[in-house]
Amino acid sequence: MRTVVITGGTDGMGAALARHHLRAGDRVAVVGRSRAKFDALLAAAEAEGALSPAGRARFLAADLSLLADNERVIDRLRQHYDRIDVLVLAASFIRQKRHVTAEGREASWMLFLVSKYLFVTGLADRLAAAGRPVIVNTAVPGTRPDAIDFDDLELAGRFTFSRANAQQRRANELLGILATRNADLSYITWGPRNLVRTSFAGETGPVMKWTAALLAPLVGQDPGDAVRPVIRLIDDPRPGRAAYRGAKEAGLVPGPDDEGDAERLARAVERMVTG
């Protein structure tokens, strides 16, 4: 029986993966905001044939844009599990504008990079205890190597959605360099090939709202169909870093000093979280 941890596991593709792993007989820890959505997920998994899913599932409520919630959840996961086979980093909350949390940090940077960094590093020994550990990071792969502003990681001076998105995507590829210092670990940066029918949770602009309301129901993939390539990658992991759009492998974009940039990113995040 594998132990699977999924952030953002109560909705969309995260929920589809959670249901799959419950049907497969795995232990599943779901991190999310809504207990009601988690209860609905359990009911759906049971209706799909999962045996006693409630006995193998755990819900951890959290807002992962907050440092305190990340630390609390990671501590609880460490208390409950000696081994984690699969870590899926799928939490999402889209913000078109810069938003500062109650802790004084930029919310998107915290959610889409710092939280993932904390899960990867804070659970590293639990992943190392697994035979064939896998991390799936649903950060869409492929962006330019110079996308990170190391002097202004929270983009206080020049925030735009596109700039923030590019920086987060590049940072998550660098996070894979840090994660795969465990030579047995498979780190997959993955994004769906096509539009997916999901809630597009967050504060979205008019174009994204129109897409979610009108276009996605017509042409979007069902989340369960969208994650089938991820399931295959989890079930047959290949150590090292890789990037995929759907089932198609995408080339990682090398920079002039990826190792140095990964170290620089780690130092910056550690300074941020330690005050």
Rank of each mutant, 00 (worst) to 15 (best):
D149H: 13
R72L: 05
R232Q: 10
R181Q: 14
A216L: 13
E46V: 03
V88P: 02
G255K: 06
F200E: 02
D125P: 00
L22N: 06
T160H: 01
E203V: 07
D152S: 05
V219K: 00
A183T: 11
L87R: 08
I74V: 14
V73Q: 08
R58H: 12
E270F: 01
R245T: 06
F38T: 01
L67K: 14
A24Y: 08
G104P: 07
T198K: 03
F112A: 11
V4H: 12
K248D: 13
A166H: 10
A124C: 02
G205Y: 11
L17F: 06
G157W: 00
L42T: 07
L17P: 00
G275A: 07
N194T: 08
D235T: 06
Y187R: 03
R19L: 03
A262F: 01
G205C: 02
S52F: 02
A226E: 02
E106H: 06
I94C: 01
A57E: 07
A212P: 00
Q96I: 09
R181F: 09
A62V: 11
I135W: 10
A130S: 15
P256I: 08
V28I: 13
D257W: 02
G176M: 05
D151P: 00
D261Q: 15
M208K: 10
P237W: 10
D184Q: 14
F161I: 08
V140F: 14
D82I: 00
A171L: 09
L66D: 01
L218H: 01
G8H: 07
Q167K: 12
A129E: 10
R72C: 06
A61Y: 00
K37V: 01
R126N: 10
R241A: 09
A166Q: 09
